[in-house]
Nucleic acid binder design. Structure first.
Lengths: 337, 337
DNA sequence: ATGAAAGCGCTAACAA
DNA sequence: TTGTTAGCGCTTTCAT
């Protein structure tokens, strides 16, 4: 068993200096085309594999962008990561993914772990972090982007939208349609902070219209999905049977609520209206289709990727913190009038 | 602006040798408790961040496990990665994720890219790879695990199940219930190879029962999801209006098909039966609930993680290629009798 | 339990 | 365009 081939071995085989091999492996370095071909051939013959760890150490560039999301199993966040990844790939950057299970303590641990890999940028979901996490991030000298939110006190850059404002738009629409008894189905207070912001927006909007804000059902800890939607609907129907419209923290919750109605023979939207959040596939294909808010998950990822690419290239004049505000869009469908 | 603190700086501040700092940062190294406390204090004060790249280079251990899945936005694969990640975390291993968009050419590129990061193990989805990919993997000297399939010629280790066999079980059940006109809704031949295996299992099963195998609707390239399910159902109803039961390549497809029926006033299961694959949440909460095959995505991830942990620890006697076969389970629900 | 010396494989910086 | 030298920050190895 021979040890793994290094650049030195490739250099010897190709009859050049190791530095030339190094250059041949960078697409933008100035190397004679013939020389490069010779090097590549030698590399192929030796089964040479470029060693990123050594490269990182010497060049002080990891090629990583750390991205932290609450959950892998969420089509919205997956869309954001997918779109960002696509943009960053063009810059030769790779995503180092971490997920927090909706816990900011877990986020703190994750940040610490990811920082050891020397990411060239850090992408966070949401604007709420532990104090220590903020301290760690403040010390980091790379661009930091908070997404999916508009934090009051951003760490640095932001690509997001106001969850509460988006929710307000939905409530206004329902009030417009004449509903006065409107409920909210969501999760417990502590964990899902975007869900919490939606709840706050919901309450504020009802208050502005002078409507009752007591129809709030908390279905448990995040992630609040279909099961929780069904359970919450059950509770709601028991506690407030005269409810006219239901606003849910996400489309998955809304779907759970919808099917619970269907199981009970309650017609949507004739007997009760239901709306979700996030424009998941399911809201477009459920029967009836579900009114929702399109938050443009992929757009968030794309813009975040572009922002990072721009900041790392650094060809623009020195810039301060950037903020890209996304405008969510109400999508009215069959589950509301 | 001071340059970033290194171990040397921490060592100086704590009045010890760099080597002692290094040991203090390994949980299992023999360091006096007081010394360690002193080191940690100095590190904290200096804002020291451990540099993984340097550690990797010298120790020849990256702490990475490369994992390649077809798509991020898929609850089944997300479950596998989540469960695997949880097991590997305990071993101090971090997942380096890549996704192929259901293309084995993309998989090849990804493998090449990930190999440069010196993963300590490689996890693949499926058993079909480009020739060059196989060559690259053959040269790698780390454990390789193929998942979600039982390849005829595995590269090395396997944690998976037979997609065709699982499908056969479902078809047998439907035939048992008296159906003879059974259709399959899936994707095009080329991309989704697990979907393809399911189709093959479907056809074989029908043939064994001496039934017609012509009701096959291909709805387009992967990922085949709700939209494709609805479209495929539309085509099916036009081409074979007397179909009695529909088997779908996944639960998402089945849901799309189900809702298409609902839009047309076709009752499920009274007028037509529908079954899916994968035990996604949606199949448990749709109304009616959807018959499906539970493939134990999380179990695949857990077992893969455990296998890797065992192989890397290497405390067992030298082992050959491992194969863990998962047994998918038919889950009969309301969408079939 | 702690330290000293050497070097992992690559590339920045400079030279030719 | 190509080569030479030095060293990135850590850990292996051996010594105490």
């Amino acid at each position: 068993m021979t040890r793994k081939a290094t650049m030195k071995d490739v250099a010897r085989a190709a009859g050049v200096a190791p530095m030339t091999v190094s250059r041949a492996f960078k697409s933008n370095a100035s190397v004679n085309a013939e020389t490069r071909a010779k090097v590549m051939e030698a590399a192929e013959a030796l089964g040479y594999v470029f060693d990123s760890a050594a490269s990182n150490l010497r060049s002080r560039k990891s090629g990583f962008v750390a991205a932290i999301i609450p959950s892998l199993n969420n089509a919205n966040f997956a869309d954001t990561i997918g779109a960002m990844s696509k943009v960053l790939e063009r810059e030769g950057l790779q995503i180092l993914l971490g997920y927090t299970s909706y816990s900011i303590e877990e986020e703190e641990r994750l940040i610490e772990k990811l920082l050891r890999r020397s990411p060239e940028a850090i992408v966070l979901t949401g604007g709420h972090h532990t104090e220590r996490a903020r301290k760690l991030l403040d010390k980091a000298t790379v661009p930091i982007v908070e997404t999916w939110d508009l934090p009051e006190h951003p760490i640095e850059h932001v690509v997001g939208f106001s969850n509460s404002k988006a929710m307000k738009g939905l409530v206004d629409h329902l009030v417009d349609k004449g509903f006065t008894k409107i409920a909210f189905l969501g999760g417990d207070a502590s964990a899902d902070l975007r869900g919490q912001a939606r709840l706050i927006g919901f309450i504020e909007a009802l208050e502005q219209h002078g409507l009752d804000t007591s129809r709030l059902i908390a279905a448990g800890p995040a992630p609040v999905a279909m099961r929780e939607g069904a359970l919450a609907m059950e509770h709601l129907l028991k506690a407030y049977p005269d409810t006219e419209a239901v606003v849910c923290v996400s489309d998955l919750t809304a779907f759970g609520a919808l099917t619970e109605c269907q199981r009970r023979g309650i017609r949507v939207p004739e007997d009760i209206s239901i709306a979700g959040f996030g424009a998941y596939d399911i809201s477009a294909f459920a029967h009836p289709t579900i009114t929702t808010i399109e938050a443009f998950s992929a757009e968030i990822g794309r813009k975040t990727g572009q922002m990072i690419a721009r900041l790392l290239r650094g060809d623009d004049p020195p810039e301060g913190p950037q903020c890209e505000e996304i405008s969510p869009q109400l999508v009215v469908r069959q589950s509301t009038p």
